[in-house]
Nucleic acid binder design. Structure first.
Lengths: 145, 145
DNA sequence: TTACAACATTTGTAGGTACAAATATATAAA
DNA sequence: TTTATATATTTGTACCTACAAATGTTGTAA
């Protein structure tokens, strides 16, 4: 590998972290007035996605971006805000059943358009083909791990 | 904006966070045996980059990826490990002069090839042109903020 | 020269990430 | 049946991010 490719590799690593951190900052800022962090918001969306079916902690953790984060403690925060309820699973008492509440669904409903708007803003001026290209490169990187 | 573009926008946001988190995990893992976190490693590289010139906390903070992080406390950790020394600036006593130690330089020397290797691994199978394309897209996203 | 604003860093706090160890429950093997 | 193993979640710890407030220092205008 040439020195040039090595420099590019480092630049890619640094810039992908920087870009992701900027996106994170934007979304954090958009959610803040509504009292949610990105992680709490993501867990809420995952629970909405299970369509009324009970979701276990494991189910939620598998779908999170930061898989090593502590789902128990993020869910705790959502329960405090009455956005989620937690029940012990009847069939398997090791498991925890999580459900989004009506209040949680209603909050998500408000946030959807706000987040859509932010996502539009972030990708503004980037062509569809360019996004497809970017996603393809991401898949190559992710497939290694 | 079409519904299709909106879905792509969301996918880009999610996958860029996921990719960056995977890269972070890889680098964290590579650095762990040497007792450094990514943030500590980055600060150390920034201090090496100042080539023996005193670097203020502000100088370091500006160059970090996570600008809102607490440079004081990251530097504290590096000082504990004798990788960095901190002095009050003589000309302006508000400022702090930071220097990387010989021990710090020597550790970085060991880590360089390890990180180079990781960066190679991450970008393996991705063509130079593809990386340039990716970096161009990143610049577009970053230029908005 | 004494206020006052600007600057540079530190400290406090709430929330997260990563990893390991502990707890509780269920299943399978001797 | 007892023991061992696997499964699901919780708890503990070190470190980090984001943001705000506090501290100490410097420059400047009345």
């Amino acid at each position: 590998m040439t020195n040039d490719k090595q420099k590019l590799a480092r630049e890619l690593v640094v810039q992908s972290m920087r870009t992701s951190q900027m996106i994170t900052a934007e979304l954090t800022c958009a959610l803040h007035p509504h009292g949610l962090t990105i992680q709490q918001f993501n867990v809420l969306r995952i629970l909405r996605g299970s369509n009324g079916e009970a979701a276990s902690l494991q189910y939620v953790t598998e779908r999170m971006i930061h898989k090593m984060s502590n789902t128990t403690r993020i869910v705790d925060k959502l329960i405090e805000k009455n956005l989620v309820v937690r029940k012990q699973c009847a069939e398997n008492r090791r498991k925890i059943d999580l459900f989004i509440t009506t209040q949680g669904l209603s909050l998500l409903n408000t946030l959807d358009s706000i987040i859509d708007e932010k996502e539009k803003e972030i990708t503004h001026g980037i062509q569809t083909a360019e996004i497809h290209q970017l996603l393809a490169t991401y898949r190559k990187i992710q497939s290694k791990y």
